[in-house]
Structure formats: structure tokens, C-alpha cells
Design a protein around this nucleic acid. Structure first.
Lengths: 329, 329
DNA sequence: TTGTATGCGTTATCAT
DNA sequence: ATGATAACGCATACAA
């Protein structure tokens, strides 16, 4: 591979089998060929250990059977799950995956879009944060969690319903005064709807709530201050807390324990994402349907003649108890 | 990209700029060209939004600037870290990464090797389990954690030294009778040296130890039985346990708590890998140098004229306290 | 049914 | 320094 191409080509196979080039091509592509010829060709292929050069194929067909996945990293559990399931979904369609970790670098995101196009991938699936990401016409693109522009479908969990579900669960579990804590990108994206859904769910049940929303630069200490401000006579005013992500929930639970409150006895906590460590949920949580998101992204990307791609697809979330709420039994 | 190639080619650029094809190629590749021409070509490229077709490039150069990574999955933390750092290391050399998740499927591993070769990647980095994995000549391959064969370098942590380090730490932390617990592939691979290193470290210090090694099919319950067998008068005979991975350590710690032993007060536990959740180590552990492993794999893979590739490279591990040992202070 | 010839987009070797 | 042309490996329209 490194040196002057010593890999056998169709020409070599043809010579070995004593047939014409086109015949070999047909055998390789499963087109009808006389049995006698076919066998000789197949033997020659085995003997020479021939493999088609998919770059020549791609050059010819203008199709590469490769898709690029743009994602911040692979070690955040939610991202890792996405990578895995998108990889599997692509594999089911006989597609290969070019992985592009962006590390939340906006320029790198753009650079990868350029690279991906230059590398002639058949399409791109991206979970990106660059508000000005420029995607050229006729580059099939499916976005995760963020509406990017007209003609580019966005796939996400039903974040609004997830927020509602969190409110419903906390209410049903007996909470009467709850809090919503949020941090993360202030960019307009789907996960932001968790807040709206939660408010909606609280209002529908007459469940009183307060919110603490951090801005981009703020320290997590702000949350601890917020909690301290809501302690009266050693008691926390909240009996339930909904955190915008499991990661935040994890941090908040530590804070609560540091303040000598017991979870879930004194205060119940629900997170969002469905992060699992060692096969267990790290907290009670709203679970994102990652396998379904992955499958939907791939289907939308590779859909051949879909006249009108849906601009936004929201997939149903579910609730999972994870030890930070007081379920029966 | 889907339809009859409407992307501009060098020919289009040449026509637009009123120069010859070869001149455009030179501009694109940074070869010397008269300034007047260069500017006209650059403007034409901008205007047409031209991108080189790297498949045509690959066809010509027999080089694709793409490497394949074979790994069981992306959600196991150690693998996720590897994927991320290998991706970054490849990027630094301007290489793209084709990710291939094998799910521990031996046939799939072999299939991916074939696909990778067919896809004309410049090389493969693989963490594989197929003992008979067949890698064709002149396919650059670097293996992680397992010696595959002559001419194929293997990169791993210094697992032996890691085992020694675990013994040393337990001893220094006051342990006087310890246990080693192991499960996982019975395949000959580098991580198996953890056991030998640990024994060596214990013997060197006169630290008495016992071992419990599970076979491939055995249930984790065997470990619990082993622990129960070593309880006398309600006291555990071990004051230190070294687990072959952090995942196993996590399970064992749960067992110990279930048996009403306190970690680290009654018994200290050290794992292996350096798995972090929410930025914290899940237990005291021997940390694998993942960024260095990643960099080494890439360096070895892309090393141009390395006459003798080293058969085995072991990189230094380190110890990190993670709350399951009794450090000072 | 099988063989031949052309072109995909690029690079490199030539003349000019 | 620049322009024409062949070749990379494959698929396919067309001729045999």
C-alpha cells in the first residue's frame, strides 16, 4: 500500500483468468456472467487475493458509502452512546463511518465540514455548536439537537415532553415545591425546551417552582449559593430538583450531601440524558432514546428520494428511576 | 453529490481562470507558479467553491490519508478515551479516522480488516481479540494490548510495572494480607501481565497474597463466594485487594459493602485503567497513559521509513488515589 | 453472453 | 514557467 501499488487490480485478475476486464467487473458486481467464466474469475480473485479499490469505485460512481459523524468527543457518555449506535445503524446499511471529534471547537467544526466534503463523504451527521456553521448546498446533512437551517433536518429527543415528564414525576412522587437548575450552551437548541416543558408541567399541576439558570461563564458555585439561599431553619425549601443533565444532577447531589441533606429522603433529584455507568443509571433521569435517534439520523441521511425532509423530528423519552427519587417498594 | 456530479472540477477551474489544467493542479498543491496565474486560479477556486476530490487523489497517489481504528465499542470508558485521543493524534498528522466498532465479534473484526483494506486505508490500529486474525502483508497495522505476530508492533501500558505498583502501594498503605482478583479474556495479552507484576511486587516485599482467577464463562458470583470464604469471626482476612480492572473493582466494592465491610477503612481496593466518571476516578487505580498510547500508535503506524518497528512498546503507568485507599491527610 | 473502449478527477511527465 | 497528455482502477455503453 505504501510503495508503488503492488496490490492486484482487475487487470491482473483478467489476465490470470484469461478473460476480459469487463467480465471481471461483472463478476465482482454480481452481474450475469457465464458460469464457466465466473468460476475462473472467482478462482483468480482468490488466488491473487484481489480486492476492489473503492476509491476508484467512488471516483466512478461519485458515491463512497461513507458518512461523517461530527461530535464533540467520545468520552462523554451520551456522545459515546450516539457514536456507537450511529456506527451500527450505518453498518446495517453497509456504510462506513468517518469520525470527527470537534472538542466543541467551532472552527474545527467548520473545518471538518470542509474536510468531509473534500473527502467526498455521502453525507454528514453532526452534533455541532457553531451558530454560523456553513454547509454547502447539496451536501446531505442531518443535525442532532439543533436546528441549523432550512433543508437540514434536525433530530432530537422530545425535550419538551421530557421536561413535562420530570415535573409530572416529581409531583407524583409527592413534591410540592421544586427547582429547575440549568447550565450549558445559551445557543438556541432543542435541549433548551426542557425548561419550557418543565414549567408547563408544573403549571398544569399547580406545582410551585423556582429556577436557577447559569450563564455561559458562570461557576457551578452559583448553584451552591442558590441552594444555601433556600435553606430556612436547617431545612431546604425544595423537596424536588430537576437538573438539565445527569452531569449537573451528579454535581448537585454532591452539593446537597455536602450540605447534609439526604437524597432522596429530604430532596428528590431527577436528571436528563439517561447516563449509565457500569450499567446503572447514575440518578433518576429522563432517558433519551439514543438507538432511535441514531437510526433516524441515518435513515434521514440516506433516504434516497425523500421529497420533503421533515425539518424537526422529536423522539419520545422515558423515565427511569435511579435511586435519587422515592419510588414505591 | 448524489446526482450526476455537479461539483466543480479542476477542469472547470482551469476554464474559469483561462489557464491549463496542470497549472491549477500546481496552485492547489503549492508548486511554483507565476504570481499572475496563481491569483487568477485562486480567484476561480473561490468563485466556483472548488474542492479537490480526494478520491481521485487517492487513486492517483495510492494514499488516502485515512486510518481505520478497530475497537470493541465506544461506550466503555477506556475505549472511549482511546478513540478520542487516537482521533486527535491522527488529526495532528492530517489523517482522517474510519471508526470500526467490533463489539468483540471475532468475525466482525476480520471482516473489518478486509473492509479496511478494501477501502484502501493507509493503515489500521486495532484493539482486537481474534486469536487468528489474519492481516495481509504490507497492510500497516499497530495492535493495542495484544501481540499479534511478527512485524506487527504492539502498544500497551507497562502492565507488569502496574501490577508491581499496585502491590507497592497496598504495602505502603499498611496492608499485610492482600488478594488479586481477575477476570476477562483468557487470551494471551498484555493486561495478563498485571498478575505477574503484582505477584512479583508482593514477593519482593514479603507481602502475603492470594489470587482468584475467573475463567471465561464464570459468573461474578464466584468472587463473592471467594470473599465469603475468607471471613473469620466477621472479619475479612484481606486488608487490601487489587482488581484487574476498575470495572471489576467497582463490582467488588459493591460486594464488600453488601457484606458490611467498609472501604477503605476495613479493606483498601485498587483497580486498573484510570476510569473517570464526571472527572473523578471511580476508585484508587493504576492509570493507563491513554494519550501517550494513542500518540505512539499513530507514530508507529505512519512512521515512514522505520527499518525495524519495535515489536512491543510499554508505556509507563501511574497511581491515582480515588477514595478506596487510605492515603495520608 | 463476452470483449473493447471511454471517462471519472487528479498528478506527473513531457514538450513548448 | 506553462500547457498538453498519459495513467491510476473501475464501470459501463457499445460493439462483436
Amino acid at each position: 500500500m505504501r510503495e508503488k501499488s503492488q496490490a492486484p487490480t482487475m487487470k491482473d485478475v483478467a489476465r490470470e483468468a484469461g478473460v476480459a476486464l469487463g467480465t471481471v467487473s461483472k463478476v465482482v458486481n454480481g452481474l450475469p456472467v457465464g458460469d464457466a467464466y465466473r468460476i475462473r474469475v472467482e478462482e483468480a480473485i482468490k488466488k491473487l487475493n484481489y480486492h476492489v479499490n473503492s476509491y476508484a469505485q467512488g471516483l466512478k460512481a461519485d458515491r463512497t458509502y461513507t458518512a461523517a459523524l461530527l461530535i464533540p468527543n467520545t468520552y462523554t457518555p451520551f456522545f459515546a452512546d450516539l457514536v456507537h449506535h450511529i456506527n451500527l445503524a450505518l453498518l446495517r446499511r453497509n456504510y462506513r463511518m468517518l469520525l470527527c471529534c470537534t472538542d466543541f471547537d467551532l472552527n474545527l467544526e467548520q473545518e471538518y465540514v470542509r474536510m468531509a466534503r473534500q473527502n467526498k463523504v455521502d453525507g454528514i451527521i453532526g452534533l455541532t455548536y457553531n451558530p454560523n456553521l456553513s454547509i454547502e448546498e447539496n451536501t446531505p446533512f442531518v443535525s442532532i439537537d439543533r436546528a441549523i437551517g432550512p433543508g437540514i433536518p434536525c433530530v432530537a429527543s422530545d425535550n419538551f415532553a421530557g421536561g413535562q415528564l420530570a415535573a409530572e414525576k416529581l409531583f407524583d412522587l409527592g413534591c410540592r415545591h421544586v427547582a429547575f437548575l440549568r447550565t450549558g450552551s445559551s445557543l438556541t437548541n432543542e435541549p433548551n425546551k426542557r425548561k419550557a416543558g418543565f414549567e408547563n408541567g408544573c403549571l398544569a399541576r399547580g406545582l410551585s417552582y423556582e429556577m436557577k439558570i447559569l450563564n455561559d461563564g458562570d461557576s457551578y458555585d452559583e448553584f451552591e449559593r442558590f441552594l444555601r439561599e433556600h435553606i430556612t431553619d436547617g431545612r431546604l425549601l425544595f423537596d424536588g430538583i430537576f437538573c438539565v443533565t445527569d452531569t449537573l444532577a451528579h454535581t448537585v447531589i454532591r452539593m446537597l450531601k455536602g450540605l447534609r441533606f439526604r437524597v432522596p429522603k429530604d430532596v428528590q433529584v431527577i436528571g436528563f440524558d439517561g447516563v449509565r455507568y457500569f450499567d446503572e443509571y447514575v440518578c433518576s433521569t429522563i432517558v433519551q432514546p439514543v438507538p432511535e435517534i441514531a437510526q433516524m439520523c441515518v435513515d434521514l441521511l440516506l433516504q434516497e428520494n425523500m421529497p420533503a425532509k421533515p425539518p424537526l423530528v422529536c423522539l419520545p423519552v422515558s423515565y427511569a428511576a435511579g435511586g435519587t427519587t422515592r419510588e414505591e417498594g
